[in-house]
Computed example of a mutant assay.
Amino acid sequence: MIEHIGGPVLRGGQAQPITPVIRVDAPLVFIAGLVPMVDGKPAAPDITGQTRCVIGMVEAELGKAGCRLEDIVKVTVWLTNKDDYPGFNAAYAEIFGTERAPARSTVISGLIAPVRIEMEVVAACRR
């Protein structure tokens, strides 16, 4: 069972793709930090393309564990530039929506890979 409690989070009068609290009763799956690199290069030049790519990578890794994007309960995101936040958030919201989005933390940080985003997730797999 995955129960979304509260939300969506409102910031600046707009609903964000974040649920403040999620309760789970299912085995947890942890996906290590993924970056949008393809053939040793960034998958896209902009944050929107990199966000879509890394979420696609997350989806593929979840599939290996028998999970789906809907099973994600917590996302941690690192962005290298705070100015990328609106583009990232818009691309993220296209995929997760605002009604049943995972809990999420987003921070600004340097990354080892030459990309603009890194993402790790925790999912509650309901096989």
Rank of each mutant, 00 (worst) to 15 (best):
L111C: 03
G13L: 08
P17E: 02
A44H: 14
A91R: 02
I108R: 08
V58A: 15
R11Y: 08
I108Y: 04
V115K: 11
R126C: 11
R104G: 02
P42A: 10
E70S: 15
G110P: 04
R127N: 12
V35R: 14
A60T: 13
P45K: 12
Y85Q: 01
G6M: 07
V115F: 08
R52V: 07
A60Y: 04
Q50G: 09
P17R: 00
I55R: 09
L69S: 11
A65F: 15
L28M: 13
C67S: 15
L34P: 09
A15S: 11
V115T: 05
V21D: 00
C53I: 00
V35P: 06
E99Q: 13
A44N: 10
S105T: 05
V38C: 05
A44F: 10
P36A: 12
T19Q: 04
V35I: 12
L69T: 07
A103W: 00
K82Q: 10
G97C: 01
G56I: 10
P20W: 08
G40H: 11
Y85V: 02
E70H: 09
P17G: 12
A113S: 01
A91I: 03
S105H: 11
M57Y: 09
P27D: 02
I2P: 12
L62W: 03
L10V: 14
V77C: 13
Q16I: 03
E118P: 06
A43L: 08
V35T: 15
S109H: 13
K41N: 13
V121E: 03
S109Q: 11
V38L: 14
T48A: 09
K74D: 15
L10I: 15
A113P: 03
T80P: 12
A113W: 03
L111K: 03
I95T: 10
G87N: 10
N89S: 13
S105F: 03
P45G: 10
L111E: 03
V77I: 12
G110W: 06
C125G: 04
D39N: 14
P8F: 06
P114D: 05
R52S: 08
Y85M: 01
K41Q: 15
A43Q: 09
N89T: 01
V122C: 08
P8M: 04
Y92P: 01
D71V: 04
R127E: 06
E3A: 12
A32Y: 10
E59R: 15
G40M: 12
P27A: 06
E120V: 08
V24F: 14
I117Q: 04
M119D: 05
G49F: 06
